[in-house]
Write a protein that binds this DNA or RNA. Structure first.
Length: 225
DNA sequence: ACCCAGGGTCATA
DNA sequence: TATGACCATGGG
């Protein structure tokens, strides 16, 4: 693993020029962002947006209101986002925890380490979802690792892709200054690039990162291993 | 018809 | 620690 600050900044600059500012996270409140972070687990955002629309129309996009919805009905709201039974439980567990903790106003004042540990203790919130929430809902300088991050940076030869989540997060955070605005834009750009260009089937001709990508040479119709 | 998407939990070895 | 099954919808 070889993450140098200059290299990461160069990649950031190219992604920003290619894709433009991403303005993440889509969502109008802390709670909406938290809900979206759970709903988007292994799910296309298009489908998540439909589920969130359902919650908004039902005026259930607030902690107390959401808990007042019967779990069966909640699952029907979440249906378009897939895994709706699982996600209904997860969203409820997160919301119950949130209210027990005193609401968003209270936990906003918690130090990042405590907040992260508390989030990870909630059923259905794993490392990536916790870090999405920390970064995008609470503006903490936490670098989010996801499948796109692994794919893109392993094709560039900077990571193996086999490292554990914490190992990668620590490496990115050690290489970059702890700036939430930068981490915010960086992860959003990684996702934008992963969706539009650097897919499972590589498209190296139009990729701004093709210089250094191991698929850009050798004809490249490979798959990641 | 198949593959993929802004993961996580649980059981098993 | 590391696999595999499972969750489920919608788009390409």
């Amino acid at each position: 693993m070889n993450l140098a600050r200059r290299r990461l900044q160069g990649i950031f600059d190219r992604l920003l020029r290619a894709h433009g500012p991403q303005q993440w996270w889509p969502g109008e409140s802390v709670f909406e962002i938290m809900v979206g972070a759970v709903l988007t687990q292994n799910t296309a955002w298009r489908n998540v947006a439909r589920a969130i629309d359902n919650l908004r129309r039902a005026e259930a996009l607030h902690p107390a209101a959401l808990l007042a919805v019967h779990p069966r009905r909640l699952a029907t709201y979440l249906q378009p986002s897939g895994y709706f039974n699982v996600k209904a439980k997860r969203v409820r567990a997160m919301t119950r925890w949130l209210l027990d903790a005193g609401g968003t106003a209270a936990i906003t004042r918690w130090p990042t380490v405590r907040l992260r540990a508390a989030l990870l203790a909630v059923h259905g919130i794993g490392p990536e979802t916790a870090d999405d929430i920390l970064l995008y809902a609470f503006n903490r300088p936490v670098f989010v690792i996801d499948a796109y991050t692994r794919r893109i940076f392993s094709r560039l030869g900077l990571v193996s892709g086999q490292e554990g989540y914490e190992t990668l997060r620590a490496a990115f955070e050690a290489a970059l200054p702890p700036d939430a605005a930068v981490y915010n834009e960086y992860h959003a750009l990684i996702v934008a690039h992963g969706k539009d260009v650097c897919r499972v089937r590589p498209c190296c001709e139009t990729c701004v990162l093709r210089r250094g990508c191991r698929y850009a040479r050798s004809g490249a119709r490979l798959s990641d291993s």
